[in-house]
Write a protein that binds this DNA or RNA. Structure first.
Lengths: 333, 333
DNA sequence: ACTTATCACTCTCGGGTCGCGAGTGCTAAT
DNA sequence: ATTAGCACTCGCGACCCGAGAGTGATAAGT
């Protein structure tokens, strides 16, 4: 599609624009790329890139600005950046030092990530499915509503509100608790669900059985519901998007968990870059760099940062990867 | 300090400014207050109010704008607003419908509050001290770090990371867990702490005792650490403060839990209004309306909203009170 | 066919000017 | 103490204009 020089021109243009935020002139491309051609040649190339839809002029006779397609081409061809040693060691010492319960660790990870990247950061908690259960309790809340609390071997806590088909007595609830605790004991939840289904129906009182089964069913969704979303570093927003309308839109996205999930939650097992249109987000100039983390048997989650398309992708991608890897390791042992 | 008419003039001026955001002219005051005097009289009063520091002119020969002192006088003298029936029933049905675990309920309460008030909302979780403990577990994390998990009678979960003075064996940890579970069983935490101190030192192995005591000490701070802070409705920011620098500052405050606590956490048992300077916040035009909620034995917390000083106080105060009361009731049974 | 030097042309940006009008403070009368 | 009348002030928006950066086109060179 593009020969080497035009690729280099596009690359230089994107990087110059990322650095300055100003429309990029042919001379600026020349300066940055250090190519041994004249500015007129660059101008010809730029006209070509424009006809392909990679760049555009904000107005006649101005410099060029990358289009979303231009950014897409750039990120697909950019080589990964390098981390400064200081950054790397900051990440490592963070995960060596911090000992907190999961929710606080994830919240603080957003702080680290946004500190390093200078972009707002999002972390999605790992699922619960693979964890083995260390303790289980049923707590009555209202009449037919109980809370199921599980503590995993790694100390994570899952709380689930379950609606009962009937209003159980305290005794029935205790019996169900005992049954469930046995079924769950030192088992991954996924395995325990089968065990609950297989309980001998003839040896157990009808009411107790239905309570137990109701809780068992609810546990199927425990994975999704424990995938909490954490956001940090939103103060960066005002500097990144100089426009109030944009800040407003982005804050609207950050406000609701489900839209955050939509931004981050592709299934990809590698670090990805997604641009506004690709996420069904319109009217705002948005890029999301996100990567998975793998906490082994404790599940997987995702970390990411949001920024304008004019974003330092090479550096950001490395930071997201490094933080994700370290977070996974820190959780995974 | 002020006679009746001047008080009325100030009140009309503040309300007009809250409604329009424009400097208020003497005629505008007249129109809003419906007083039977001429605009010249109002002008004289305004000059007097200005000499007292309640209002100021953005520039010579412009209308008047309230100063922080002016707002202070206004909120101290404003009669509380009325809630529309729709608003009240929205609050009530919210707390009747929602059944979630605590953290999600609090998070969703910020959504409700900011929806109704049109301001960003903050909720501080209730403490844990008064709760009685239903279940207790110690989970080893790293060598000398363990996680203490408590489930309260009302189904709340507290997780605390505790550093040990030594690296306990599994057996020692189990023994400590048993001791602590006994001490805590169906007791409020505050009472249990004394019991732990009073354990018979001669009947228990030295290591187990020191582990137990370390956990006991950590439980003292359980109350503070479970007072999570939740924020919602930040999208409103962009509309309320039309200035990017202000939005940036406010986001900086919302980003960090401790600054949020500082904004909300006065000890007052009634709804209060605090203005920027009174909270050691400078360079930004900020007002915080916050009120307590009382969940009975399950502790107390605080709900509030942030806005510019140009804020609909009468309406907002009522909403904060109503949401706080309903939240307290919903948790308190 | 591609590259380069040159140059006329275009369009934004920032600064300066200016008139309008809202709103005040002052004064004198009631 | 209140009011009518009036001269004065000052921000705001509209308008204009020149400078300068950067382009596209053209024509010559490789």
């Amino acid at each position: 599609m593009l020969d080497d020089r035009r690729t280099a021109v596009l690359q230089a243009l994107v990087e110059e624009y990322i650095a300055t935020g100003q429309p990029v002139s042919s001379n600026a491309v020349l300066r940055r790329s250090g190519m041994a051609v004249s500015s007129a040649t660059i101008r010809n190339d730029l006209a070509r890139l424009e006809s392909y839809g990679f760049v555009e002029q904000p107005y006649t006779s101005a410099g060029r600005v990358p289009t979303p397609q231009g950014y897409r081409f750039y990120v697909d061809h950019a080589s990964p950046g390098r981390l400064r040693a200081a950054t790397r060691s900051r990440i490592e010492s963070f995960f060596n030092d911090v000992h907190h319960e999961l929710s606080r660790l994830l919240k603080e990870t957003t702080g680290l990530l946004s500190d390093l990247s200078h972009y707002p950061a999002v972390v999605i908690g790992p699922g619960f499915a693979g964890e083995s259960v260390r303790a289980f309790h049923l707590v009555p809340l209202a009449g037919d509503v109980v809370l199921a609390v599980m503590v995993s071997a790694s100390g994570r806590v899952s709380q689930n509100v379950v609606s009962m088909p009937l209003t159980p007595t305290d005794a029935q609830l205790e019996e169900a608790e005992t049954l469930l605790a046995q079924a769950l004991d030192n088992q991954p939840i996924s395995a325990a669900i089968d065990r609950i289904e297989a309980l001998p129906a003839d040896l157990i009182a009808q009411e107790v059985l239905s309570v137990t089964r109701a809780v068992g069913k609810a546990l199927c969704s425990v994975d999704a519901s424990t995938r909490e979303v954490y956001v940090g570093g939103t103060a960066q927003l005002a500097e990144l998007w100089q426009d109030l309308a944009h800040v407003h839109t982005i804050l609207g996205l950050l406000d609701r968990d489900e839209s955050l999930r939509r931004l981050l939650d592709d299934e990809s097992a590698v670090t990805t870059v997604r641009l506004s249109g690709e996420m069904d987000v319109h009217d705002v100039d948005l890029a999301v760099v996100s990567g998975p983390y793998d906490a082994g048997e404790h599940g997987r989650g995702r970390v990411g940062v949001l920024g304008p398309m004019r974003m330092d992708y090479r550096r950001t991608i490395r930071i997201v990867e490094e933080v994700g890897d370290n977070l996974g390791d820190s959780l995974g042992r």
